[in-house]
Amino acid sequence: MYLVTFTGNLLIILTIVSDSHLHTPMYFFLSNLSFADICFTSTTIPKMLLNLQTQSKVITYKACLSQIFFFIVFGCLDNLFLTVMAYDRFVAICHPLHYTVIMNSQVCGLLALGSWCLSVMGSLIETLTILRLSFCTNLEIPHFFCDLPEVLKLTCSDTLINNIVVYFATGLLAVIPFSGILFSYYQIVSSILRISSAGGKFKAFSTCGAHLLVVFLFYGTGLGVYLSSAGTSSSRTSLVASVMYTMVTPMLNPFIYSLRNRDMKGALGRLLSRATSLSDRTVAGLP
């Protein structure tokens, strides 16, 4: 699953960068989402695979804090880029005549930069509040990575402030973006229903349905874990939910956003053709 996620998202980035026809706002945000997905899975999965290979499940305190920080950064980036992409589709479908004016290069750059800044700041606040907590030595985290809610359950200190920060950050960086996605797709569906062509309706609903499936899978499991962090939720339930939003949805994104997209499939075919041609020339020793 990790290899599929890494390869699929890397191919998306290379395809978009190499094809000038895809230098549009939609594909710009898609390449950022793919980069965030690669980093998101790389924060936890390689360490887990190493643990399985070496049969050693030890992680240092500093490494655990680092994992929490980067996990939250790239998880928040996923949230925000999914929101920005939904807004981009809303403008393209509901206001097509003003699309190039609204989604100009400066606005796209600011949206991407704002997403990065909010993610880093939110993660930094959540991670720094852990430093005030005290832990006993040789703790066992019932998870395959240092997940913040699970780590907070193991502290000997009062976690009221930490839980407040978690709820605030989750509301700001997850609940509000999710609401924005739902509003955007509500407007999109309303516009689609006014399309007279049955074929056009089916195509639009098929695309939106696939996007929303990934969104609900990602947000449903992710929000379930973080909004129940102060409760006594089952670690097994939390583990299963974490697998869904940390491994399954990043793996599905390349299939949902690329293989179902005719422009992406065409650009990917041209990229692979150029790579094959270059390989053949290299083997033949041609200049």
Score class of each variant (00 low, 15 high):
78 D>S: 09
98 H>V: 12
106 Q>P: 05
64 C>H: 00
126 E>D: 13
68 I>V: 11
93 I>G: 11
108 C>D: 11
89 R>E: 07
37 D>S: 14
88 D>L: 08
33 L>H: 04
32 N>C: 13
16 I>D: 01
27 Y>H: 03
143 H>M: 15
8 G>C: 03
146 C>N: 04
94 C>M: 08
9 N>Y: 02
43 T>S: 09
140 E>Q: 12
148 L>W: 07
28 F>Q: 12
93 I>M: 11
137 T>N: 14
136 C>V: 15
126 E>Y: 06
126 E>K: 09
114 G>W: 00
132 R>C: 04
11 L>D: 13
138 N>I: 04
6 F>Q: 13
12 I>F: 03
37 D>W: 09
40 F>Y: 01
102 I>C: 05
96 P>M: 11
34 S>C: 08
29 F>Q: 11
88 D>W: 06
29 F>L: 13
107 V>R: 02
134 S>Y: 02
7 T>M: 08
143 H>G: 10
84 V>L: 07
134 S>D: 06
118 L>K: 07
51 N>C: 04
137 T>M: 04
6 F>K: 07
19 D>S: 15
142 P>S: 12
41 T>S: 15
121 M>L: 13
89 R>L: 04
49 L>A: 00
8 G>W: 01
139 L>G: 13
66 S>K: 00
43 T>N: 08
121 M>W: 12
95 H>R: 14
11 L>S: 14
34 S>I: 07
36 A>P: 14
109 G>C: 06
25 P>F: 08
98 H>G: 10
98 H>I: 09
120 V>G: 11
31 S>D: 12
104 N>D: 13
97 L>N: 15
100 T>W: 12
89 R>P: 07
64 C>I: 01
139 L>C: 14
105 S>D: 12
68 I>P: 00
87 Y>C: 00
103 M>N: 07
55 Q>N: 11
147 D>P: 00
67 Q>Y: 00
25 P>R: 06
100 T>S: 15
72 I>V: 08
124 L>A: 13
133 L>A: 13
130 I>D: 00
23 H>W: 11
91 V>C: 11
67 Q>E: 00
85 M>F: 01
139 L>R: 07
141 I>K: 01
82 L>C: 07
25 P>G: 09
99 Y>F: 06
98 H>M: 13
13 I>Q: 05
106 Q>H: 14
143 H>F: 14
139 L>V: 10
96 P>F: 05
103 M>L: 12
27 Y>L: 03
37 D>Y: 11
28 F>G: 13
66 S>V: 00
114 G>P: 00
131 L>Y: 15
127 T>N: 15
31 S>E: 14
25 P>S: 10
89 R>G: 05
81 F>P: 08
129 T>D: 15
102 I>G: 09
82 L>W: 08
12 I>W: 01
69 F>L: 10
36 A>M: 08
133 L>R: 07
48 M>N: 01
16 I>A: 02
75 G>H: 04
7 T>W: 05
107 V>D: 01
47 K>P: 00
140 E>W: 09
52 L>V: 02
54 T>Q: 11
